[in-house]
């Protein structure tokens, strides 16, 4: 990976540093609240989901569209790189930013489950699936933002993926193979689990790869 891409990834992390700190803190706090009893769970879980979704969306939107609007895109494009390298740097950089928030929030969500006796460990399986889903969600939003030429289209992508979270909770939760083990004493890593996980990873891989084939091939960037 050449130095320009490396420096741009570092720049992405630097420019979004406060956002990363804030998002991670919010994710962590929400997870802690969620582990405190029933009301705590309702409030915490909602905040946790919102934090991660919002972080992803804002990173994708702000990181891509606003660079255009703030007219700093010209500065970046004047650097010695090709359009493909720019797309690559953007993808890797924004994903790195999100990964930090996501990792902190996911670990914070899983720890109380595994450590606290009052919370059945069985729900760890579902939580893992949910966390990976959020990551896959982000890659889809990022992919959309990189390809969409208008804000309207990007907004559409965001709305659809948001719906996806609800759909996930309504379909994966009640799945046989997941449902009956949710409140069990130990997490069950059965075939249903691996299938769902497999789908999520596949979506992530596609969403991550697509920009390298399409956005990177664009010949006009301004």
């Amino acid at each position: 990976m050449n130095i320009v891409i490396r420096k741009l990834i570092a720049k992405e992390l630097y420019v979004n540093r406060w956002f990363i700190v804030g998002g991670s803190a919010a994710g962590m706090a929400s997870a802690v609240i969620a582990s405190l009893g029933k009301t705590g769970f309702n409030v915490g879980a909602l905040t946790w989901l919102t934090t991660i979704i919002a972080s992803g969306v804002m990173l994708a939107l702000y990181g891509i569209m606003n660079e255009r609007k703030e007219q700093s895109l010209q500065f970046v494009l004047s650097l010695p790189l090709s359009i493909a390298e720019y797309v690559r740097a953007k993808m890797l950089g924004l994903t790195a930013c999100f990964l930090i928030i996501w990792l902190v929030s996911s670990v914070a969500a899983l720890m109380p489950i595994l450590l606290k006796d009052s919370i059945p460990d069985g729900i760890a399986a579902y939580t893992v699936l949910l966390c990976v889903f959020m990551l896959a969600n982000f890659t889809v939003v990022l992919c959309g933002a990189l390809h969409a030429q208008s804000e309207a289209l990007t907004s559409a992508v965001i709305i659809v993926t948001n719906m996806g979270v609800s759909i996930f909770m309504f379909t994966v939760g009640p799945l046989p193979g997941i449902n009956e083990h949710m409140w069990g004493p130990a997490p069950v890593w059965n075939s249903t689990f691996w299938t769902v996980l497999g789908c999520e990873l596949a979506v992530m891989a596609i969403a991550f790869a697509l920009p390298f084939f399409f956005a990177a091939r664009r010949r006009d960037f301004l």
Binding site: S72, Q74, P80, S82
Partner: peptide, 17 residues
């Protein structure tokens, strides 16, 4: 990528990050 190593580009509507 190679050419821009040796080109300085300044535009009146360019902004810093």
């Amino acid at each position: 990528a190679a050419a821009k190593r040796d080109i300085g580009y300044v535009s009146g509507d360019m902004r810093l990050l």
